[in-house]
Design a protein around this nucleic acid. Structure first.
Lengths: 343, 343
DNA sequence: AGTATAAATGGAAGCGCTTTTAATTGGTGG
DNA sequence: CCACCAATTAAAAGCGCTTCCATTTATACT
């Protein structure tokens, strides 16, 4: 059995309560006693037991993380480790630990969250995704358990603290940018429509086109998590149209890489034949050929702010609901060019 | 305050201890009582408090995860989310949760581990890297705290349960493969030499060359975490040699992508001018141009087995030390070709 | 000196659960 | 009809810590 507060107390000739106060650096204990107790702790190699402390305090200093189901893009997308780093640093600063739910199906994940919450394992929860109808989010909201979402909640946006980019605006800007380059046939390739981020980006794209006076063409919009096989055909179809798009807005760098790849096979050159702009600006955006023009969404900050604001909320339940928008910016590389009007 | 075991006991008209036994499904409780108690639990929406249980049991059912420092490759490498998925599924099966240490510097990470261990936060620890001299590993080994490492421990390999690929052999096979394609000038591009995996792969490469009767040429070996700028120059230098290599063994897909990119800029064609083979076979290996021939190391299994064997160890301290080798296989795509001897 | 007051520390209860030990019950067989 | 045993269930202690309340000790002020 490890050394406990009692052992320290005995050695230092004080009461356990005094030792506890020394740990908390309670001002009601004299410096002399503190010193004495600290020496005893040192000597015995004492480390406070977190579990016992948690039980007494009714607080664990642990934040729960909920990842989207395993099958999703996440499992290979560098987005993930990067937010995690942000979260991790934010949590560490305030001495919080991170714990993840594990589970493959949606149901398993939900159960995991319930366990975390009702089992008192965590003080707060971070949702690393935002889906259109999400059981987990509803549950947390109903119980009024402290949580933040990374992304924009589908509903009750004003009532849920979240940190997100302005994806709508970003998509508009990006589309405008392509428009500005002279493109008038612009396609959109997005991910899972159940994810709010996809929806937002799509809406921004549509808005920009409409504002510029263009009709939306359904054939120009492709949805799928088609990082692999699926993509090939989709792109193929797209390029077989009478007026194939001369530019594409792609909702994610990893997807864009797939698109790049497929286009190359089809002998379509980027950016000469078609321009591509994508989102996230992960490392590989810079390593692809051509390097991708991509919207840097500041993934690290997304995570970092999420952790920080959750902790605030946990430590002060009266903390008001917040919506934190992380700025984005377009990093121009070589995947977009002016439309050559000769065609 | 949440509903406790006492509330349930009161409602069911039994003692708290009985409720506890019902939770554990203790055979000493009659079916009739169990039923009664379960109904009460249901009615009150009772969920056991994990913290209290952990305190009483001296066991948390939480596994600690130690990631390499944030600056490392990890933060953008899809390796990470994939092992995590493997770990996560392995842990979930046995109802364990995962908790991460957070910390940027090596010192911070070490402190985090000590907190986890001495603070009784976790029952076991998984090291997601293996460095040449690792304070954390030494600490865990010394304390005889249950842990496994993903990768091969630098020292005490026989005394530490670990799960790894046979990277030495894989590198040899890969090099032999290139040799078999007629290449006789083969370069090696590796990551951080402090990581055991880099060393192993390098050794395998060297061994293969020596066995084939070639001298090792230092100019052919590049080390750096040069995913970005650094890489450019290194490759440049390499290709300026009198006899530039006609094939490269690259220690990681992400690196290989960078290399591919740089070579393209230099107008060197893969695989016509130079063949490339890399490791890990993450998704982007398949999405690069040309698609990379890569060693699939079964990242998911690496994580999965790590979780499973740690849990075994935790639940049975007498469990013998194990070394688990996950099989690898070379996935041939289009980045390697026979050497054209015309040159 | 004597009491009021503040400062410092000790004692004990309690956080929610498990587990050991004790008590109760209902059958059995002599 | 009662001692005796197995089967159930209850009571209480304990996990290591915090914190409320009580007690002691030092300091100040009449």
């Amino acid at each position: 059995m490890a050394v406990t507060i009692k052992d320290v107390a005995k050695l230092a000739n004080v009461a356990p309560s005094t030792v506890s106060r020394v740990i908390a650096n309670n001002p009601r204990i004299s410096e002399r006693t503190k010193q004495k107790v600290r020496e005893a702790m040192e000597q015995l190699g004492y480390h406070p037991n977190f579990i016992a402390r948690s039980l007494a305090n009714q607080s664990t200093r642990v934040l729960g993380l909920v990842l989207p189901g395993s099958a999703s893009t996440f499992s290979q997308n560098p987005f993930f480790p990067t937010v995690l780093r942000g979260l991790s640093e934010g949590a560490h600063e305030k001495q919080y630990a991170l714990q993840m739910t594990t589970g493959q199906t949606e149901e398993e994940i939900y159960d995991g969250v319930v366990q975390m919450v009702q089992g008192g394992r965590v003080d707060g929860i971070i949702l690393l995704y935002s889906k259109v109808e999400d059981k987990v989010m509803n549950y947390l909201k109903e119980r009024n358990f402290p949580f933040v979402v990374v992304g924009k909640p589908y509903k009750f946006c004003e009532e849920i603290t979240h940190v997100d980019n302005d994806n709508f605006r970003a998509a508009r800007e990006v589309t405008d940018y392509l428009l500005g380059l002279g493109h008038d046939c612009i396609g959109f390739i997005g991910g899972d429509l159940n994810l709010v981020v996809t929806v937002e980006r799509l809406l921004g794209y549509e808005k920009a086109l409409r504002e510029a006076g263009f009709d939306l063409r359904n054939e120009y919009i492709i949805h799928e998590e088609f990082l692999r096989e699926g993509g090939r055909e989709a792109i193929n179809e797209l390029m077989q149209l009478d007026h194939p798009p001369t530019a594409l807005v792609v909702a994610d760098d990893l997807m864009a890489l797939g698109v790049l790849n497929t286009l190359d096979e089809m002998n379509i050159s980027v950016p000469d034949d078609i321009s591509i702009i994508s989102f996230n600006n992960v490392l590989l955006a810079e390593m692809s050929r051509p390097p991708l023009t991509s919207v840097d969404i500041n993934i690290f900050h997304l995570g970092n702010e999420a952790a920080k604001s959750l902790i605030q909320r946990v430590e002060n339940p009266k903390e008001p609901i917040k919506r934190i928008i992380i700025p984005h910016d377009i990093v121009k590389r070589s995947s977009c060019s002016k439309l050559d009007k000769r065609a």
